[in-house]
Design a protein around this nucleic acid. Structure first.
Lengths: 237, 237
DNA sequence: AAAGCCAATTGACTCAAATCAAATTTGGCG
DNA sequence: CGCCAAATTTGATTTGAGTCAATTGGCTTT
């Protein structure tokens, strides 16, 4: 939110031992390409609540999220907010046709990104169709997720929205770091509400209701799925 | 809906005089490529209400919409439907990562598509990065639209939804065939409702309300924007 | 032109989620 | 530790959109 100090690493990082190497955009690059690629991106840190880029900003860079979680959102003129997604490590941000970002992105907690200046990155892609193909894959995956989210926003009840969110979030974390028995929720209730098209009060009430029924347990910074089958039933309905 | 007779043209069509030549995927191909491309696709007609492909179907083809309008939608197990978009001439359908369609597509009125078998099309792309780039552009454009639609579904009132829909639809038709003074609405009220995350009754009431205020006029098969500025104000809010 | 059919409209009523308003809990920090 | 500010929860009430139920209108069929 507040403009603040951003740490830029003085270099000395290698793609070859990058945590997201195997599933981010760069998974399409071979050893030789990787060494060249290394010079294009630089690691940048952002603190809690800082904005990485804003909607309507001229796109000067693309970002590969390495560590942390980001909220991606759009605002209406009167301040209503819709979170269009949460980004996790491996997600690639900033592609657009207009030359301007079409959503804003904030760090939720400390974040590390690999930042690429637009022009050199564009040149690098130019003669590397496999990288382009990888970017296309990521876009198509995003598109599919976006459509699923439209169904949630347009046609699901509050209970279903919350249940679906918990399962989907757990699933993404699972893919990233294996099955945790508790699901960390680094984002605020307001973020969850703005993601699900609800108010903060409704999200809170739904959580408490699920807890009273013994379906989940609300713990510090997250929840624990006591009865995943019950949650799945709610989400499926 | 009903499985029915689909007309397949016996050939004799040329990409070079195709109506969508300049803005569809094929806009990225040069004369020589186009002649080769011509053999990959074949024109297929669908009648009103016919399903071109269904969610979860194995993807055997991609489709380039040439004429008509299609509804793209997802269903929940209990039958609730969310229309994720309306396709117009020039739209490219069928891309996915899973090998299965992730939404269903019906013809709204008579439709002509250019159908490409998946494998040969994939092979054709292989060594033509400019075509891949074009497909990527289309995906990124769709993604941006999808995000806009999430904002509408999650954060806008019924009035705003309807106003935004009318303007957006008019805009798309405008880009296609120039400014019409009446906006044709080939889709049913139910389709509009399922697109906007509303009920048919709410859509109908909102239309009548707009008409009573002299903002629009409801005509057979469409509406006329009597006071576009008023509609824009409603949509902006 | 009457009957039948489906889509759209209109009206009366209900309800899920929003809004308004406290009360709590949590977290940061001197 | 104790205090303030922010986030979250909880409660009371309102309301926008949904549901249920006719009615209307446009076409097609006969």
């Amino acid at each position: 939110m507040k403009p603040s100090v951003v740490t830029i690493e003085p270099n000395g990082h290698f793609c070859s031992d990058c945590a997201v190497r195997d599933f981010a955009v760069c998974s399409s690059l071979d050893q030789a390409e990787l060494r060249e690629f290394e010079h294009l991106g630089r690691r940048v840190h952002f603190g809690t609540g800082e904005t990485v880029f804003s909607e309507e900003d001229i796109t000067t860079s693309f970002y590969n999220l390495l560590e942390g979680v980001m909220r991606l959102y759009k605002l209406l003129p009167d301040g209503r907010r819709q979170i269009v997604g949460f980004a996790l490590p491996g997600d690639f941000l900033g592609m657009n046709l207009s030359g301007r970002h079409n959503f804003s992105a904030d760090a939720i907690g400390p974040v590390t990104v690999c930042q690429f200046a637009k022009a050199p990155f564009g040149r690098f892609i130019e003669d590397r169709p496999h990288l382009l193909r990888r970017i296309n894959e990521l876009a198509i995956r995003e598109l599919s997720q976006a459509r699923d989210h439209m169904v949630l926003l347009g046609r699901r009840s509050a209970d279903e929205k919350v249940a679906t969110f918990l399962l989907g979030w757990r699933e993404r974390l699972f893919a990233l770091k294996g099955l945790p028995d508790t699901v960390p929720l680094p984002m605020s209730r307001q973020d969850i509400a703005d993601y699900l098209g609800l108010t903060i009060e409704t999200v809170s009430r739904t959580f408490t209701k699920l807890e009273r029924h013994g379906t989940i347990e609300i713990i510090h910074g997250g929840i624990s799925l006591l009865d995943p089958a019950r949650v799945e039933a709610l989400a499926a309905a």
